[in-house]
């Protein structure tokens, strides 16, 4: 028979309770804002690019999900879309692009080649970009249908919404007194 002490959650002061409430509110609203304005950097290397164009243009219209802005500078992008086969020669380039993106950042592996190397199990091809950068969502298909891509994007939106967001991720060095 558990005592009452075990059932009652950890005691918090009213100040901590209020802080937690507002942090949760800020996290949820920031998550909502970020998931609906995913600016992407399309790293297009192969035929999946055609399917990417289809997703981005009027018929399937990725703008419905707020991800219609391709940025060709990684410093302005939130979402790295790796579209197509990545070979060993391109590996360092992709890694550098990822490192140049500002936090918070997410990665989608678009198509089987980016996800696992696809049928290119040979001397030249990286067997999945997760060998180089961390990946949030994998979209299978050779190439994937636009609906499938949008499905992957919605999955990513759910993931972004569920993550913890802070108004200031990192205290600037000057304010921290260092």
């Amino acid at each position: 028979m558990p005592s009452e002490i075990d059932i009652v959650p950890a005691v918090t002061t009213r100040r901590e309770e209020a802080q937690g409430f507002f942090e949760g509110l800020v996290s949820k609203s920031l998550g909502w804002a970020r998931k609906n304005s995913l600016w992407q950097y399309p790293f297009v290397t192969a035929c999946c690019g055609m399917e990417y164009m289809s997703v981005a243009s009027a018929r399937y219209d990725i703008a419905r999900f707020g991800a219609e802005v391709p940025r060709f500078s990684p410093r302005q992008a939130d979402l790295l879309l790796v579209v197509g086969t990545i070979n060993c020669k391109q590996g360092p380039v992709l890694k550098r692009i990822y490192e140049q993106m500002a936090e918070p950042k997410w990665v989608i592996a678009f198509g089987v080649c980016a996800s696992s190397g696809g049928f290119y199990d040979n001397y030249a091809t990286v067997q999945g970009i997760d060998r180089l950068v961390p990946v949030d969502v994998y979209i299978p298909g050779c190439p994937p249908r636009p609906e499938q891509v949008l499905d992957g994007l919605i999955l990513l939106q759910k993931k972004v919404q569920a993550q913890q967001h802070k108004l200031i991720d990192r205290v600037p060095a000057l304010a921290a007194g260092k």
Partner: peptide, 26 residues
Amino acid sequence: PLRKDYPLRGRQPLTSERDVPELLRG
């Protein structure tokens, strides 16, 4: 790489690769 005695999967990555779990990947 196109010599017949070169290994088919003789990959020579330029950067160190992250360790990924082997599920169905080979």
